[in-house]
Amino acid sequence: METLKTTAEGVIAVKAKEVRAFGTEAPDKTLQPIKINRRIPTPHDVEIEILYCGVCHSDLHTARNEWHGTVYPCVPGHEIVGRVVSVGKHVSKFKVGDHAAVGCMVDSCRECQYCKEDLEQYCEEGNTATYNSPDRHLGTQTFGGYSESVVVDEAFVLRVPENLDLAAAAPLLCAGITTYSPLKHWNVGPGKKSGDSGYWWFGAYGR
């Protein structure tokens, strides 16, 4: 399989290979072993062997088309931690053997006002979600972390601090950032005024 993609370095041929995954063919079907295509790393790509993948409620919603718009086959998973197994020739942040992580996004337009403000999640074109999103390289839908490997532009690959347990760090990529971002944005922290009892918040649980 080969597709053409226009990049800053000109038009390049993007090749792909088959890898093992777990996914579903229809909303009412269970997840089963399937094969999917992953691109061969282009110059800015990092190929990651997936070691652990967290299970988010969004995975289930998407697999079962509960939010509508699921394209099948569907391979969920956006809390990905793994090991770098190959890098494109222009990759500078990662080398083979590094631990690496991928969260809910694998790409965005990178040119709109929000991408330029480090708010790629609110990209005007819509960010390229890790699964069930139009793949900017292969033209299919994107496939998530319930698979043996993933190939992602280094700009969307993250580093996991060495002291953290890799498996237990996986949920930080969605559950962690989903809660961290609003806590930071609204300046949650110790009380700043005298007599202030601090910033109280609420985490109502479950269902």
Partner: peptide, 11 residues
């Protein structure tokens, strides 16, 4: 969620 830079900050 959060942006890529903020996700790294969170990690």
């Amino acid at each position: 969620i959060g942006g890529i830079a903020e996700t790294q900050e969170m990690l």
